[in-house]
Design a binder for these strands. Structure first.
Lengths: 217, 217, 217, 217
DNA sequence: AATGAATGAGCGTTCATTCAT
DNA sequence: TATGAATGAACGCTCATTCAT
């Protein structure tokens, strides 16, 4: 899957060298976003971080939105790939699989990249619909996995209830980012949070004690 | 309590007219932050939104950090006052009081102001320590209220367990902002989320089925 | 002599308090000029240095040129008064009087005020005719004293020769400011320069070995 | 010798066109400094004088200190080259060589560039150490030439005496700038000053009648 | 006599973008 | 592919000045 297939402005490189340059720019672009925040994110900073000239950067990513889009796709691809790998690895009963997935996600919040990047994405999504779309897509991928496992754990749940539980669980976990993320005041509580969260969520799924909600279309 | 007492650069106005101007700038400043995001937040935009000249804006808030700080204090004060009012109103058993507080907070996520402002604050906090401090202070105020109620609901919980539960519950709720907030895809699930969340949290508090964690100092 | 008699914009104060304020502003104004240079000299800085509000400063000195003019007059008055006092003190033969005057001037170059202020005045004079006029007046006062002594030391010199010698001697001394002034690399040579200079100048005056120049009008 | 070798921020142009633009900016920059003085010296004025956009000017000289430094180097290089040329031309006995050098310098004071630029440099040097350094370097180049000739004219002088005489002579000459420089009241005395000065200095050198001073290290 | 409030211009600087080479 | 050159707009900030209080 070519990640930037949708944008004809972006050059991902025809020769080997060009491909490497484009990939390197994307990597450094992400680093700049993490280090400086979107408010200080500029093409010049990215070019400097990547060690290329401004002109050359704009040969690959002609405009700022082009670069941002490509970077988003790049970042999100990384997470999607990780999910795919994770799902290929975990085996056993659905309870164990869900535990593995949620454990991974909760621990990943303490990864500096995740701690910084996701709040950045949430705020960007509030002002740029394109970003909102990409972020939603990533979360939907994640949620589909979780929803599948929930449905297998408790087959009596209606589709609407599965969806509700999925939203509740995944959103709750994301909420820890600014509090138990990397460098945050409560980072050291991560293991305990892990335990409490997973136990509470499994209990909630299994009990099925949920309000009825209309099924999602 | 004078909100800008700490910053001698900021002028809050000595005459009636000046006081109105300064207050008006702060309000419009918040609107600009909500509308455009921090990456597009500029003194010129704020001045235009407030209908004052750039020079006049900087007469009251000489530097951008000064304005941002004052705006943060202004925004946070609003939330703190709301908490105070809320706590003065709710009566009854601690279970009912906690239910009232959490219900309020969950519903408030669908307030456009909250939906937009908090992700902005989370990302800003990652790059500007001063912001991190202010945001932490706000959350700590909120958490102290929640912790007090939790301890009253289940007096057998150790201080460390109370703290753990408080972080878990408050962080989980915050996590819904990008998903059930104003204009978000799952906003319509807010009432159901409310129900699930509060029931689950109360159950968790009462059961006391928690890992042991060192008590906070 | 009221120093600012010529400028109707300037208020030097009617009551005692006002006079003190105006004088204090002038003093601090000079300090700012010395410390920051004319390129960084602003009404705001002067007001802050003087501990008065901008508005109050502009009550006394409505515009920047007004303040600069008053400050110049203030500074120059100081030097003129010093000359007057010096001439009242020195007695004896004209050679000794001249020696006393030149010694004073050469030593005064190492006064921080003189070291900094005069180059400032020279450069300002090149761009603002009003400054040029004031500076010329000061130097003319000084030169008249020197010229008088030279003429008494060697009465055979024509007026043109006296003038020539006066210019040569006074200009030569001024030239040491950037080299033997306060904090300058050759400041420690000041005593030796003093000796060489005065001996050479006296010899020159007494020998009368000078080109003929037209008498000054 | 590449004049801007020390500053990696400055672009001197890699293509023919860019080199011309950078050089043109430097020239016009000097003109603006002469015309308006450092207090009115701004990047916008320089850009306008050079007929380039502000953005383009800052492409070559990213900051104001960068431009000032480059301009200083440019100006000083001009004087150093002139000295070199002068020394290559003058022949004969050291007395004649010194006469040629001092004559040149005294006459050069009436050059508008010199008349205006040097007082500007002296005052700038009092507030910006970098300028002080550059100016000192220029004078040291000049002084070394003069010192060499003095030592040859009177070999019995100690190194300390040579140094003292050099400072005295060169400083004295510089002092005439604000008085006999271009457009100054006593400009017409330049030829007579020339005669008096050189004769007096030669006499002083040859007599060797000087205080003893410690030798310079 | 003094302060507070406001304007409008100009400053140094950074930026996204375009284009020629 | 990549660099160099250039533009024009916007940014945060400082300033001289005016005016009401």
């Amino acid at each position: 899957m070519n990640s930037t297939a949708g944008n004809p402005n972006i050059r991902t490189g025809k020769h080997r060298k060009g491909r490497r340059t484009a990939a390197h720019i994307l990597e450094q672009s992400t680093q700049v976003l993490m280090r400086d925040g979107y408010s200080q994110f500029s093409l010049r900073r990215v070019a400097q971080a990547a060690g290329v000239t401004l002109g050359n950067l704009q040969y690959y990513f002609p405009t700022k939105p082009d670069l941002v889009e490509a970077m988003l796709v790049h970042v999100i691809e990384g997470y999607v790939e990780t999910f795919d790998r994770l799902m290929a690895e975990v085996e056993g009963r659905p309870e164990e699989q869900l535990t593995a997935v949620l454990t991974y996600v909760i621990r990943d919040l303490t990864n500096p990249r995740t701690t910084v990047l996701f709040p950045e994405l949430w705020s960007m999504a509030n002002h740029e619909p394109a970003v909102q779309q990409y972020v939603e897509d990533l979360y939907e991928t994640y949620r589909r996995i979780v929803a599948g496992l929930i449905a297998r754990i408790n087959p009596r749940l209606s589709p609407g209830q599965v969806r509700l539980l999925t939203i509740f669980i995944t959103a709750s976990i994301e909420g820890h980012t600014p509090f138990t993320g990397h460098g945050k005041r409560w980072e050291h509580l991560t293991p305990a949070i892990e335990e409490v969260a997973i136990e509470a969520y499994l209990e909630l799924i299994q009990s099925g004690d949920l309000p009825e909600v209309p099924d999602p279309e």
